[in-house]
Design a protein around this nucleic acid. Structure first.
Length: 231
DNA sequence: GCGACAG
DNA sequence: ATCTTGTCGC
C-alpha cells in the first residue's frame, strides 16, 4: 500500500475543509465488498502528553471461532510525532497519516476496516473513516463513541436496536445510533467507504463481544492506549 | 453573537 | 485523547 503525498496532510484549516468538500464526492456509500476474510480495527492513542501519536491496527480473522473469539492475525503500532492539534471536523488530518503508515507495515490486506470515529456522519460528509477508506481504497465503517453532528432519538434498550442519525436541512440519513450493549450509551455507526449503512450495522453487530465496542475497534483501542497489558 | 464540537 | 482512585457489579 502506498501513502498519499505528504503535502496533503499539512494544510491550513480552510484548505483542509476545501479538500474535504472535494473528496466527499468520491466516497462510496453502497456495498462494494467482496468476500471478507480479514477485518481490521484502527484507533489512535497518544504518548508524552500528546506529542507522540500512536496508530494501532489490529487484523482479525473472520469468521470467529466456535467459542466466538476472534483470532488476531496481525497487529501493528506506528509511533510518530503528532502533527496537528485536535480540531472538531478536521480529525483526519491529525490521525490518518499515522494510520496510513501503520497499514503500510501490514503484511495482510484486510477486506474491511472499522475505524474509531465518524464516516460520513460529518459536517462535510468526510469523517476520518471515510477519508482513510478513500486513501486505503478499502471498505471502511465509522464506529464512534459520541456524536459529531446530526439529530437522533433514543434507540431501543436491546442490543442491536438502533435509530437513524439525520443531518442537514433535508434530514439526510448519515448514520445510525446503535445500542451495542444493554444499559450503555449507544454507538454512532456510519458508512465510511464502499459499505452501505445497513451492511455496516450488520458487521458491527456481528463483531460485538460482550462489550460496548466491536472487537476490531476494541482491540485497536487497547493497543493504541497500551492498556490491558499490551504494547 | 451564542452554542456545539469524533478523538 | 489524556490526567487519575475508588467503587459498583457480574
Amino acid at each position: 500500500m502506498s501513502l498519499s503525498p505528504l503535502h496533503e496532510w499539512n494544510l491550513a484549516p480552510r484548505d483542509a475543509i476545501a479538500l474535504q468538500r472535494r473528496l466527499s464526492g468520491r466516497v462510496e456509500r453502497e456495498d462494494r465488498l467482496g468476500e471478507v476474510c480479514h477485518i481490521a480495527g484502527v484507533d489512535i492513542g497518544f504518548e508524552d502528553g500528546g506529542d507522540i501519536t500512536r496508530a494501532a491496527v489490529v487484523v482479525l480473522a473472520w469468521p470467529p471461532g466456535e467459542d466466538g473469539r476472534f483470532e488476531v492475525v496481525e497487529q501493528v503500532v506506528q509511533r510518530e510525532p503528532t502533527r496537528m492539534p485536535y480540531i472538531p471536523g478536521l480529525l483526519s488530518f491529525r490521525e490518518v497519516p499515522a494510520a496510513l503508515a501503520a497499514f503500510d507495515r501490514l503484511s495482510v490486506r484486510p477486506e474491511l476496516v472499522m475505524v474509531d470515529g465518524q464516516g460520513i456522519a460529518h459536517p462535510r460528509r468526510l469523517g476520518v473513516a471515510s477519508h482513510l477508506g478513500l486513501w486505503l481504497d478499502l471498505p471502511t465503517i465509522g464506529v464512534a463513541k459520541s456524536r459529531l453532528c446530526g439529530r437522533h432519538g433514543e434507540p431501543g434498550p436491546a442490543r442491536g436496536d438502533w435509530t437513524p442519525l439525520v443531518d442537514g436541512p433535508d434530514d439526510e440519513v448519515v448514520g445510525a445510533v446503535l445500542r451495542s450493549r444493554v444499559g450503555v450509551k449507544p454507538l454512532f455507526v456510519s458508512t465510511g467507504h464502499r459499505v452501505a449503512l445497513s451492511t455496516a450495522l450488520a458487521w458491527v453487530v456481528a463483531c460485538l463481544g460482550r462489550t460496548k465496542l466491536p472487537e476490531p475497534t476494541r482491540l485497536a483501542d487497547r493497543l493504541a492506549s497500551r492498556r490491558g497489558g499490551v504494547r
